[in-house]
């Protein structure tokens, strides 16, 4: 009689453990193929270099840059405030609190967009929220923020405003021309209001 009791007790505890386990596994929300396809097409997960530069200039705490390149590349150069999670370590337990969270916007970046978009796809598939891609990666960062192209005059006022904002940003990130051009400092703050609406669009994903 006592043996049967112990046996039952073991079974009950086993059952309880087993019943709780799978529930932990699916705490994240599953997307089906069509939803994922829609998300890819909506492009709400792309953050432009202008928007990112702006966030960095304004010290916006909402954004967390994540550098997916190797440690060597990261040490050589990285964007301000970024942390390094080499792509192959993306799902290592130590980084889980960073990539599976709801507090901040993670912005993945690499030299191009391959690593960042793959990281986005994988985290999306696992149901993690708040992950984004820096559009064009460091290559685009360079051609838009560090060495912005001078717009042709036919591009109109908006293009010129963009360009001025970028020059301000360039100065912020490289320190170039800081001494002789004090007025550029105010330019750096320019894009604040204008770019905000784009960020709202990416809110629910």
């Amino acid at each position: 009689m006592k043996a049967r009791f112990i046996l039952s007790l073991i079974l009950v505890s086993l059952g309880l453990v087993a019943a709780i386990l799978p529930q932990k596994k699916n705490s994240s929300i599953e997307l089906d193929a069509q939803q994922l396809l829609n998300e890819i097409q909506q492009e709400n997960h792309l953050i432009s270099t202008d928007e990112m530069a702006n966030a960095l200039i304004n010290n916006d705490p909402e954004y967390q840059l994540i550098d997916l390149r190797s440690e060597t590349e990261y040490k050589q150069y990285s964007l301000p405030g970024s942390i390094n999670i080499p792509f192959e370590k993306l799902f290592d337990a130590e980084w889980a609190p960073y990539i599976d969270q709801i507090a901040r916007k993670n912005v993945f970046y690499s030299n191009g967009t391959t690593l960042s978009s793959e990281a986005w796809m994988l985290t999306k598939q696992r149901g993690f929220k708040n992950n984004y891609i820096l559009q064009g990666g460091l290559n685009e960062w360079y051609t838009t923020i560090i060495e912005p192209e001078v717009p042709a005059s036919i591009n109109g006022e908006e293009a010129i405003n963009d360009y001025e904002a970028r020059l301000g940003a360039k100065q912020f990130f490289t320190g170039a021309g800081a001494v002789n051009n004090a007025s550029a400092n105010t330019d750096a703050k320019k894009p604040v209001a204008r770019k905000k609406k784009k960020m709202v669009a990416g809110g629910c994903s």
């Binding site: 050589q76 150069y77 690499s110 030299n111 191009g112 967009t113 391959t114 690593l115 990666g137 460091l138 290559n139 960062w141 360079y142 051609t143 560090i146 060495e147 990130f173 490289t174 320190g175 170039a176």
Partner: peptide, 17 residues
């Protein structure tokens, strides 16, 4: 062509003066 290849000299990113 490799999307992940840097298209510019890395030192230019940190260039001052």
């Amino acid at each position: 062509y490799d999307d992940e290849k840097l298209k510019f000299d890395i030192s230019k990113l940190t260039a001052t003066e």
